[in-house]
Amino acid sequence: MSYLHVLNGDATLTLFRQSKVPGDIVVCREMMSVGKVKYTKDPSTFFASRAKHLGFHFGIDEQTYYTNVVQELEKLQHSGSYDEVILWFEYDLFCQINMLFVLYYLKSTVKILPRISIIDLPHHPDVKDFEALLEQRVQLQPADLQLAEDAWDAYCLNSPQALETIRKLPPGNLKHLPEAIHAHLKRFPSVEDGLNVIEKYFLQKLLMGKYRWFDLYTLFWNDMKIYGYGDFQLDILIKRMAAVGVIQEEAQMLSITSLGREVLSKEENYLDYVPLQHRWVGGVRLAKSPWRWDEATDSLTRIDQE
């Protein structure tokens, strides 16, 4: 049997190589849960749009993106020559959205798909026995592959309605997908104060006192593991919040401002201060979106826009 293993990022690469698991490796170095994703059936068009967006908004060099990310993913085009493709992805949003993309890319570029299996990977760095995990892999069925395709398409659309419908469907062997989609939808601005769930979390913690950024991140990593964010993704959020003026940093300590307190108490709305023109949640451009998260109903709601 010949295997092609797909890992989510380089974090487990060294340990995986040291294991006795046979096969070749492709590393997915994307972060599809952050920033704009374009709805298209053409991977080259998708990557061109993605590279432009990441370069403009996050300072990721386009050539570096193509060299480190795209060229590595293009190895998946040869997966038809393997007996089995095995996906090693965790349960969090970061991993699950990347996994959906990998399945989309496989279907878009490989004429005859080999057997595709997934590993229910423990949260890094808790992975110790790759060989045992390999024996517990689950083969994806046609219904699973169709659900993954539908979920990826829905994630890229300019409206989240389809995705909210999908999260309520039986997940089959994609058992972590509903919770990941739920976490994604909670990143839409709140109907009450304009904060998404992560922004609100940071403000609520800072309301209790000042924190060094790493200590604040550590609390987030312990309390909200479902997002799977690293330093880079959290830095983006903190810088945005500081630019808006709801938090501030002084002597390496983060604290909430008076505006931040007013937003938390619903005296002010975060969206009155934050520019949304280039803010995306999946395929949804927030500046043009009427969709808000309603914590009371645990669902999205449409608001009237002026």
Rank of each mutant, 00 (worst) to 15 (best):
V6F: 03
V6H: 05
N8R: 08
T14W: 05
L15I: 05
R17G: 11
S19H: 04
V27S: 04
E30S: 08
E30I: 05
K36P: 08
Y39Q: 04
P43G: 05
A48R: 11
A48C: 04
R50P: 15
F56S: 15
G59H: 00
Q63E: 12
Y66S: 06
T67N: 10
T67I: 02
E72N: 01
L76W: 01
D83S: 06
E84N: 09
V85G: 06
L87H: 06
F89I: 08
Y91Q: 04
L93P: 09
C95L: 02
C95M: 04
Q96C: 03
N98K: 13
N98R: 13
N98W: 13
M99N: 08
F101L: 11
L103R: 02
Y104A: 03
V110D: 01
K111E: 15
L113E: 11
I118W: 00
I119R: 03
P122C: 09
D129Y: 12
D129T: 15
E131K: 10
E131T: 13
Q139A: 00
Q146S: 12
L147M: 13
A151G: 01
D153S: 09
L157N: 09
P160H: 14
A162T: 13
T165R: 03
T165F: 02
R167N: 11
K168T: 12
G172R: 02
N173V: 06
A180K: 02
A180M: 03
P189H: 14
K200W: 06
Y201A: 06
K205W: 01
L206K: 11
L207H: 12
L207E: 15
G209P: 02
G209M: 03
K210C: 00
Y217Q: 14
T218P: 04
L219E: 14
F220V: 09
F220M: 07
D223A: 10
M224E: 11
K225L: 07
L237D: 03
I238V: 13
R240W: 01
V246R: 01
G260P: 15
E262A: 07
L264Q: 10
S265Q: 15
N269L: 06
N269Y: 05
L276Y: 01
V281D: 11
V281P: 04
V284T: 05
A287S: 12
S289W: 14
E295Y: 04
T297K: 13
S299I: 00
S299C: 03
Q305L: 15
Q305W: 12
